[in-house]
């Protein structure tokens, strides 16, 4: 039957023509309004930046890109945020290609994969587009805006804890994430070193691992608090661990005020514990500042104020002056501390 042409294949033909016409209308409808924007962009092609986050719909990158947009507005740059909905290694490639074709002055990118985007980022650089990596470094960029160094994070957490414990010091425990997580282990090692060096009054009783799993982290927090009677504080340099340590404290009011918990957390997850007073302070970096700094670095590259060489300096609006470090890295700054006064301002 399927091999014969029925009378109604004419119908199918008509329907097919309708399909074509409808998709054409759909497209023109979509395309027309933005066509004008791109036209305007022509005049100041180098005065435009495209920010490519790891994916759209991620609150962390919504915050960083909000900061990037704010800086672009201050600088008079045309700002575009474009990115994939998935985080596949090559999913960002089409957006890099578009940025090249539309003659952007700079691409600001948090690469999902440091290698897969390189062909196209290199093509961008040879087409005169400056490349700023933020959040995650790539193999081919002009500068990398690093949100935190190992020492910066470790120092920040130790300072918070030392300030709380005061001169008489006390006993603390560290509740980390995965035992094999390289970044977490680097932070734990750095904290241990700083405490040994600068804070003889503080003793680290134990390092436990929550393995990035809610229940495990909760049980480990419980184990630490119950097994170490004179425990004064827990540092949890991992978002799951600090959330679950706070969760355990919230469930056991008898320990509230006895054991003090801090660490690296997400404001959206920690806000309830801050509001209820279980936790006073925790740290992370401010993603809005990260995006803000990335836009200023892009502008400095476009203007030729910096080339990405070590020792180059540039002004980054309200954040002040920054210096490009070794390997083209720009460090955002010390750890950002969240407390009751600011935790509600962040949605990530």
């Amino acid at each position: 039957m399927k091999f014969t042409f029925s009378k109604t294949s004419r119908k199918r033909g008509v329907a097919a023509v309708v399909t074509v016409a409808a998709s054409a209308m759909l497209l023109t409808g979509c395309v027309a309004p933005t066509g004008d924007d791109s036209g305007d962009g022509d005049a100041s092609a180098s005065g435009s930046i495209t920010v490519i986050p790891k994916s759209l719909g991620n609150k962390y990158f919504e915050a960083s890109d909000k900061g990037a947009a704010a800086a672009a507005a201050e600088l008079g740059l045309t700002f575009t945020e474009a990115g994939p909905t998935a985080t596949g290694s090559a999913d960002q490639v089409p957006f890099i290609q578009t940025a090249i074709q539309t003659g952007q002055g700079a691409i600001v990118i948090a690469a999902n994969d440091p290698a897969a985007v390189c062909n196209d980022l290199t093509a961008a650089q040879s087409a005169g587009v400056k490349v700023v990596a933020y959040d995650t470094d790539t193999d081919c960029r002009d500068v990398f805006i690093n949100q935190a160094t190992v020492d910066g994070i470790a120092q920040g957490l130790v300072d918070l804890t030392a300030a709380h414990l005061g001169a008489e010091g006390g006993t603390i425990a560290i509740l980390s994430g995965g035992a094999n997580a390289a970044n977490l282990n680097a932070w734990v090692d750095a904290m241990t070193a700083i405490i040994e060096e600068d804070h003889p009054e503080i003793t680290i009783a134990k390092v436990a691992y929550g393995d990035d799993i809610d229940e495990k982290a909760y049980q480990e927090a419980q184990g630490l608090i119950q097994s170490i009677p004179d425990l004064d504080a827990i540092i949890a340099p991992d978002t799951v661990s600090v959330k679950e340590a706070a969760h355990y404290l919230a469930d056991t009011p008898e320990y509230q005020g006895e054991v003090w918990v801090t660490g690296l957390g997400l404001p959206s997850e920690m806000v309830e514990y801050i509001d209820s007073g279980v936790i006073e302070q925790f740290g992370l970096w401010n993603p809005e500042d990260l995006g803000y700094l990335a836009s200023y670095a892009a502008q400095a590259l476009i203007n030729g104020d910096i080339t990405g060489a070590e020792g180059d300096t540039f002004e980054a609006g309200t954040l002040g002056e920054y210096t490009v470090g070794a390997g083209g890295e720009v460090v955002l700054g010390p750890m950002f501390v969240f407390d009751a006064s600011n935790v509600g301002d962040f949605s990530f």
Binding site: L27, C30, V31, T34, S38, A82, T85, Q97, Q101, T102
Partner: peptide, 21 residues
């Protein structure tokens, strides 16, 4: 995909258009 990307249309919309087509 290429047309919508070049026109600066977000990947969410591109997904919608492909699905609708």
């Amino acid at each position: 995909n290429k047309t919508l990307q070049l026109a600066g249309i977000g990947s969410d919309t591109i997904s919608i258009v492909t699905g609708a087509a």
